[in-house]
Design a protein around this nucleic acid. Structure first.
Length: 203
DNA sequence: CCCTGATTCGC
DNA sequence: GCGAATCAGG
């Protein structure tokens, strides 16, 4: 494969949108992310935001540069290209990581949880108020879940439990986890609540 | 280990 | 110019 005009343009476009090199490479096909990065540099359009190094930084940032007298024109998009791409994830709260292999590793079971009554319930973060969207997603995901057993779980398999541990109908999602998280994308969606609009305790 | 971009350097 | 290998960081 070679860098045809079209391919270069797609590269520029995607890079401008904050896509990662690997994503771009995947999209283009026939090239590796290294090739993409190499090209990006050769084109001179490397840094797109503050810190480029590291998995961080992907969101477009407002330019705060003095902009000397040698900068290419910004990017006047003549065609109105609707591309709603808000932050896919609103920063989850600090979470007790690594429940490790316990009988019930999930802090927030999808179904009912049998709570041994007696003590006042521990601070259970919003067990409800999960967007119906997210829930629907989870239900779909469960269909294609890998249904792993406890022992089959690895560092990057979704550890979301499904079913009742007391029955045979119990398994773990097992889909690829979202980086850094213990769950797959869908389950992260219901596990990590951004913060619910505090319903004041009104009685 | 997964991922990210940055650099180097032989081709 | 190209991009695999390597580096550096999360």
């Amino acid at each position: 494969m070679s860098w045809t005009d079209e391919r270069v343009e797609l590269l520029k476009k995607m890079w401008g949108e904050g896509q990662s090199a690997s994503q771009i490479a995947k999209e283009l096909g026939g090239v590796t992310r290294n090739a993409v990065i190499g090209k990006v540099h050769r084109l001179g359009l490397s840094n797109r935001a503050g810190t480029a190094a590291g998995g961080a930084a992907a969101a477009p940032k407002a330019e705060a540069k003095p902009a000397p007298a040698a900068e290419p024109a910004p990017k006047p998009q003549p065609k109105a290209e609707a591309k709603p791409k808000p932050a896919p994830e609103p920063k989850a709260e600090p979470e007790p990581e690594k429940p490790k292999a316990e009988v019930r590793p999930a802090p927030l079971p999808p179904r009912k949880q049998i709570i041994p009554a007696g003590q006042p319930l521990p601070p259970q973060p919003s067990a409800n108020e999960i967007s119906p969207e997210a829930l629907a997603k989870v239900n779909e995901v469960e269909k294609k879940a890998k249904k792993l057993t406890l022992m089959e779980l690895t560092e990057r398999t979704c550890k979301w439990p499904v079913g009742d541990p007391a029955t045979d109908d119990f398994w773990f999602c097992g889909l690829p986890v979202q980086q850094g998280k213990p769950y797959c994308e869908a389950h992260v969606g219901v596990a990590f609540q951004p913060m619910s609009a505090r319903r004041d305790r009104r009685r």
